[in-house]
Lab assay of single mutants.
Amino acid sequence: HNGKLCKLKGIAPLQLGKCNITGWLLGNPECDSLLPARSWSYIVETPNSENGACYPGDLIDYEELREQLSSVSSLERFEIFPKESSWPNHTFNGVTVSCSHRGKSSFYRNLLWLTKKGDSYPKLTNSYVNNKGKEVLVLWGVHHPSSSDEQQSLYSNGNAYVSVASSNYNRRFTPEIAARPKVRDQHGRMNYYWTLLEPGDTIIFEATGNLIAPWYAFALSRGFESGIITSNASMHECNTKCQTPQGAINSNLPFQNIHPVTIGECPKYVRSTKLRMVTGLRNIPSIQYRGLFGAIAGFIEGGWTGMIDGWYGYHHQNEQGSGYAADQKSTQNAINGITNKVNSVIEKMNTQFTAVGKEFNNLEKRMENLNKKVDDGFLDIWTYNAELLVLLENERTLDFHDLNVKNLYEKVKSQLKNNAKEIGNGCFEFYHKCDNECMESVRNGTYDYPKYSEESKLNREKIDGVKLESMGVYQILAIYSTVASSLVLLVSLGAISFWMCSNGSLQCRICI
């Protein structure tokens, strides 16, 4: 991952900044910058967002509201009850120091605090018919004063009620008058409520006091790749198909172990950190130390980045220098085999997901714990399936590479015959000098055995068991695999060879 928040398929997220979902939807004055928000790819909250409900109280069923919003990608904020005409018999300019803005008392931008007009609070009834052709999110509140005197001074009615009804919602609220500790300079409380109004449905408000009335509502448009994440990451000019709280993932790998919460087309989250597919040879310690064997393909974004291909070729060293050249036929066979294998694994496992966190309130801790156990169970199954699949494929890959290298080895052996000696570690020792032209003939299969047989015969008789390297004779190393990324691999195959001279070296080696 890149540690950044990015656009998702070209669409920017909605960053709530210092506000949370509650503050944004109710219209906390400190969240005025969010009022123009219309569309987004996903919503970003920060872990310690401080601006929620400015007048103390709870947004009821907040967790369910977050779940609903996680599939919303755009909205239209509109005046559901026009301020100047909807409440002619009531005062609608209630403000509070708890919702101060720029040093002055204020109130929510989407709600109206209705109080008595003169000395009376006549029963009010108002309704709205949803003609938007889509779901409408309606929010309101109920004020709970701290004393009967406060109730009387604001609403005149000691036994007030609030009723809200639609086809799918029907509740009646009565204020709970009680002494409470002071929070944000208030002994009173406000509880906030919401409902989704279906197209064509009607919502009716009736009250004799204590109503925090809707002013603006939201017509919602769903987008199934949307979601809500909690993150401290910063926004950058970048684009992605998959976003996590820790950063964007741009990967076609089937798995990731970065974060379980994802938005967009994302690899499946697994616990494993070692889900690797081999593309090189079986481990040979001396070669492995030099980083030549054991190439791997990573299938977990965050564990290993991208696929690494092994390729086969020849390396030689003689009086004229040293050089490398790919054996294109065996390399292409290996590439085709690995590509098919990788595609097979991805096809089997690479279903892209959006995974969002589930919200539970403080009273639902047991449910949250149960949900976590269920999620953990599914996660263990996914991890096991992934590891088992790759384990089985790896064994076949190792066998496949062994065969490829063996074929190259036999190709060289059949040409050199007794003009060189096998020394048991995949290397041959020449009994004759071999210049670049000679080396090329070994690589392309045109090695002239009779041409060098007499010199080889004489050297075999002279050496008589002495280690060949100390006599200045020449080696050919018969097994060799270097490691390159897919891009470098293609470039390498396009070149005939490249040279690395070893000044004054008397050794001649050709490596497979």
Rank of each mutant, 00 (worst) to 15 (best):
V405C: 07
A478T: 13
I510D: 01
L506S: 00
K341D: 04
N371D: 10
E319C: 01
T339L: 07
E319W: 01
F299V: 10
N250C: 04
Y447L: 13
D327E: 08
C266D: 10
N404G: 03
V483Y: 00
A325V: 15
N362A: 13
N239R: 04
Y409V: 06
I287C: 06
L477Q: 07
G323H: 06
T279E: 03
R509I: 11
Q507L: 00
I496T: 06
I263Y: 04
L490T: 06
C508P: 00
L458G: 14
T305R: 01
E454L: 15
V473L: 15
D375N: 14
I423S: 14
Y449L: 13
C511G: 04
T397M: 10
E237S: 13
A334V: 11
C427Y: 11
V374P: 02
G504C: 01
L388T: 10
W499I: 14
Y449G: 13
N436F: 10
N239L: 02
Y452C: 07
T262M: 02
D464T: 09
L416F: 10
K274A: 15
S453F: 08
V488W: 09
V270E: 00
M349F: 08
L388M: 15
H259F: 04
G264Y: 05
M439W: 02
I496A: 13
S497M: 14
S272T: 10
D375M: 11
G504W: 03
T339V: 03
N283G: 03
C427H: 03
E422G: 02
K462F: 01
L363N: 08
N340I: 12
K241D: 01
N459D: 07
L489P: 04
N343F: 03
L403Y: 07
L392K: 06
V483N: 14
E368L: 06
L363K: 13
D376L: 07
K411R: 14
G313I: 04
V356E: 04
R396I: 14
N350H: 11
L292A: 07
T279M: 07
W311P: 00
A355L: 06
L416V: 14
M500G: 13
I512W: 01
S492V: 02
D399H: 08
L458T: 12
I476P: 06
